[in-house]
Simulated scan of single mutants.
Amino acid sequence: MATALSAPALSRPSGRAADALRTLSIEPGFARHAEGSCLIRMGGTEVLCTASVEGRVPGFLRGKGEGWVTAEYGMLPRATHTRGDREAARGRQSGRTQEIQRLIGRSLRAVTDRAAMGEMSVTIDCDVLNADGGTRCASVTGAWVALHLAFRHCMSKNIMKAVPLLDQVAAVSCGICDGVPVLDLDYAEDSKAGADANFVLTGKGGLVEVQGTAEGAPFSEAELLELLRLARHGTAQLFAAQRLAVGLPAGEPG
């Protein structure tokens, strides 16, 4: 088991301890027309996640008896400090947008029993209302809640007998700021971090995806393991918030 690194004291812009998440809230049922939805807030980052159910699958899955879960991601023009162009106006999505929405889709499919869905599709739209770092991580975490609620809606309509989720999935950012590994970077930290990483983890401890980059000097294996330790500590709290949002007992995985 990895042990915590000995590090100098750090004064974070938010005043948080190195292993503290930002203020977190998940408001389920935020979008009245979607089969499943939530508004997730992590500090100054706010993402609206909506799940839409369709009774068909992409062509490559027709006749195979499996369902499909996918995602789309976008940011409102003034989600950031300066106005960004709408991607629809430019006529194409940025590479960043495509990469993030593929990450969200992969993360959800990793914990979904698609054979138990039958031939139906669920699309999760993750729209960033306000961005202050960690938008992809908040999107993954909120998307799971929206997906769970959409499946619960399908059960209420007798479309399926049980929620076809094998586990929870959530994501959190970690980084090295002023030589100290820290959890859940806000924009002020992310913009100057010596290294930053995004961890997508399951409730049972599995790794779905790890994205880590040194922005300056390389970081060590010991530092990577410390970032993973912080990520596990943070996602444990995210999993608890997800369960609360969908009405699951504490400790129940999915």
Rank of each mutant, 00 (worst) to 15 (best):
M1V: 03
A2R: 12
L10N: 09
S11I: 04
S14A: 08
I26L: 03
I26T: 05
S37Y: 00
S37T: 00
I40W: 07
G43F: 14
T45A: 13
L48A: 11
A51G: 09
A51T: 05
S52E: 04
G65P: 09
G74H: 00
L76E: 15
R78K: 09
D85W: 04
D85R: 10
R86L: 08
A89N: 13
S94Q: 02
T97S: 14
I100S: 13
L108E: 01
A116T: 00
V122D: 02
V122H: 02
V122A: 07
I124F: 01
I124M: 01
L129T: 11
D132G: 06
T135E: 12
V140G: 03
V140M: 04
G142K: 08
G142S: 12
F151M: 07
F151I: 00
M155Y: 09
K161D: 13
L165Q: 01
S173E: 06
S173Y: 04
D178W: 01
V180M: 10
L185C: 02
E189Y: 15
E189T: 06
S191W: 11
K192P: 09
V200D: 06
V200C: 08
L201S: 14
V210D: 00
Q211G: 13
R229P: 02
H233L: 09
A236I: 01
Q237D: 03
R243V: 09
R243G: 15
R243P: 15
A245Q: 14
